[in-house]
Design a protein around this nucleic acid. Structure first.
Lengths: 133, 133
DNA sequence: CTGCATCCTTCTTGATACTG
DNA sequence: CAGTATCAAGAAGGATGCAG
């Protein structure tokens, strides 16, 4: 039977899938990764983040920032000036994460067109509008 | 670093953030990435996926599979046997993605403990719960 | 400037049951 | 086995207003 290696590959799967869940659970929302990318060039202020990340609401920025800080990915520094000034900076761990993320942006740039065409072809083959039926 | 380079870093940010959005939009849900990992070792059947991915519902498996196929990340092969047999296989593009993903699982394994401790420390510093004690 | 609290809407997901 | 359809629940996210 060809099922002999099923058990082996299943274990391989879990070995990769479980740490992957960790990453996903931690960086799940739409914003976490974007914030990490935005903060990768150096310390950045709250308002700068708000402007950099198109479409984020103040609420989500705050929440996501807190989560990242809590996970030890971001360092929050408050300057006791007036008006208040707060800077966010990636930790060493987060910078490593960012380095890995670079591989993904790389992939995206290489295949952006490919994927878009695939999507179009698929829609073509299955009828332009799913709602046209 | 004065404010003079703010414009430059902002552009760097967008250069990375936008392709990143592509990735995120495509692989957003909890399941897409897990499926890619599960299919990385070779063609895999519907039911095998269902068993491999702890907690996924049949519905979400189907939906996510369709999206991945639509994006040209998965190839769906139907064997006209009875009972039906369908296999899913990663495309070349998806295998490249999986390679990049490996960098993330790597990061997760290296820092799993670090992050967990950070989380605990944070909770400690901010009181276990707003109303807990 | 930075950030929290509240309310409300939308999207995602899960449970379940049925079909080829 | 592989998939579809429907319904309901919950989480994620957005808008707004107020505060240190």
């Amino acid at each position: 039977m060809s099922q002999g290696n099923t058990r082996v590959t299943t274990q391989l799967m879990h070995a990769q899938a479980c740490p992957m869940r960790e990453v996903l659970d931690r960086v799940a929302g739409k914003w976490s990764v974007l914030i990490i990318v935005a903060a990768a060039q150096g310390p950045i202020r709250f308002t700068e983040l708000e402007r950099s990340i198109e479409g984020i609401s103040r609420r989500m920025l705050t929440l996501t920032l807190r989560n990242l800080e809590r996970d030890g990915l971001l360092i929050r520094t408050v300057f006791p000036t007036v008006p208040p000034r707060v800077e966010y900076e990636l930790t060493a761990v987060a910078r490593e994460l960012h380095a890995s993320l670079l591989g993904l942006t790389d992939w995206a740039e290489r295949h952006r067109v490919t994927v878009a065409e695939s999507r179009a072809a698929y829609d073509e083959a299955h009828g332009h509008g799913p709602d046209a039926v």
